[in-house]
Design a protein around this nucleic acid. Structure first.
Length: 411
RNA sequence: GCGGAUGUAGUUUAACGGUAGAAUGAAAGCUUGUGGCGCUUUAGACGAGAGUUCGACUCUCUCCUUCCGCU
């Protein structure tokens, strides 16, 4: 019972399909612009890509970003953004803006804060860290009506349910908004996940009811690591008149397994997906991009490229020694780069690589007091690298060479 | 040559007559719908020799190192 709206705030046209997988290219269009998919959407949680300014964003040719409901609601406040004419004007950004509903903060400020669980579970290394550090209290309280969040700034309480999330996202004026969901960690039992899914599904219906029809709304598939819950969720979400479908939640308890589980989960639900755009929430390592695109994902958002840039890790291509093992990165503060006068990546044509060597970045990254210069250069490199990789992926799909490219990178 | 000071991880340093701490540098790892540039782990040192002592990085002596001053 897919009921198409008369004037959809979003159009998505599939332009090519890979013959040997579900990979596809498309054009996603809203009133603010268009992107070619597959596309990795850089994250600008607080309406800002950390370390970059407007000019950098323009030079990088970033056409789409993702901001966050919870964070903007707290600071500077969605009403203030509404009064400045919406996020595009507030940021002076001409492009598509996605907003996340705040549902992920049930995990990131809840279980992740308390025990260190991420959406990909936890690994031994992480567990060790968590056992050492004292557990911190959760910032969320989940009820059937919504989530009571503590402010990360002053501990004040803020209730966000589906209605509130839709209102905030309407105030933010983003092009594409997410249904309000509960992002569950994988350490929860089947019965808990089932209850949470029922809740999320109810919230999905309420999100449809209360959302601003001028905004494109994506429904979110949850269900944790459980096959029947994922399928149930996929059937339900895809039966509703959402403009797009997002895949969220966590995939498995342990880090190693959860990657495979993620692939499997997409495979389970892929038959319930249709020609609407499919967004993979919060995923974006290089191998993940290939695996997910291969399974029909159109858009991604991920903090990883920008975060690891600030944590001194820079992407490198195969030709510069990148591989699955080193996650296609080098840690630029290693002693071996101190006098390395070569480019960060042989193939990269970003402005950082044009003007700086590895030794330059080493020196800047080591500066204690002012890391702004470093963070900016590193972020530019990593984002450029990823945007470029996605372009290569799109080209390969169109040329019927996606499998070859995938194999080449993941060998 | 004489006098004074000095000597602890690669570097900067702390303490102590009884397991030598830290910072920084080095190496390895973590990071996936971002709490603003982070977190975890590992390796690494008492200048050399003799003496006193149950036991010396610590006290004594000799030598060496480096620094300062004087001739």
């Amino acid at each position: 019972m897919i009921t198409k709206k008369k004037e959809s705030p979003l159009s998505f046209k599939i332009t090519a399909r890979d013959k040997r997988s579900r990979a596809r290219t498309g054009i996603l269009k809203t009133k603010s612009g268009k992107i070619e998919t597959p596309y990795l959407i850089p994250v600008a949680t607080k309406a800002r890509i950390i370390a970059l300014n407007k000019k950098d964003i323009k030079n990088l040719n970033i056409k789409c970003i993702l901001a966050n409901t919870y964070h903007l609601h707290l600071k500077p406040g969605d009403k203030l953004i509404k009064n400045s004419g919406g996020l595009n004007k507030f940021m002076d950004f001409k492009g598509i803006i996605f907003t996340d509903s705040g549902g992920f903060q049930t995990l990131s400020l809840g279980e992740a804060k308390r025990t260190g669980y991420t959406k990909l579970g936890k690994n031994q290394e992480r567990e060790k860290m968590i056992l050492k550090n004292e557990k911190k209290p959760s910032f969320v309280k989940i009820t059937d009506k919504g989530i009571q969040f503590k402010s990360v700034y002053d501990n004040s309480l803020h209730f966000i349910g589906p209605k509130e999330s839709m209102k905030i996202q309407s105030n933010l004026g983003s092009d594409v908004i997410m249904a309000f969901d509960e992002c569950t960690p994988a350490n929860k039992s089947f019965s808990y996940q089932k209850t949470a899914l029922t809740r999320t599904n109810k919230w999905a219906v309420l999100s449809l009811k209360y959302h601003n029809p001028k905004q494109a709304l994506y429904g979110i598939i949850q269900g944790g690591q459980f096959k029947n819950l994922r399928i149930k969720s996929a059937k339900f979400i895809s039966s509703l008149p959402f403009d797009g479908i997002a895949i969220g939640g966590s995939f498995g308890e342990s880090y190693g397994d959860s990657k495979r589980a993620m692939h499997q989960i997409i495979d389970w639900i892929s038959q319930y997906l249709d020609d609407r755009p499919v967004h993979m929430l919060g995923i974006g390592w290089i191998d993940d991009l290939f695996e997910c695109v291969s399974r029909g994902i159109d858009t991604f958002d991920c903090v990883h490229p920008t975060r690891i840039a600030r944590h001194k890790q820079l992407y490198i291509s195969l030709e510069s020694g990148g591989n699955k093992e080193n996650k296609f990165t080098i840690k630029i503060v290693k002693g071996r780069y101190k006098n390395d006068k070569t480019k960060i990546d042989k193939n990269c044509r970003c402005s950082t690589c044009k003007h700086y060597t590895r030794a330059d970045l080493y020196r800047l990254a080591k500066e204690k007091n002012n890391n702004n210069d470093y963070a900016k250069l590193a972020t530019i490199h990593n984002l450029h690298f990823m945007l470029n990789l996605l372009e290569q992926i799109r080209k390969s799909i169109k040329a019927g060479k996606f499998q070859k490219l995938k194999k080449h990178w993941l060998k």
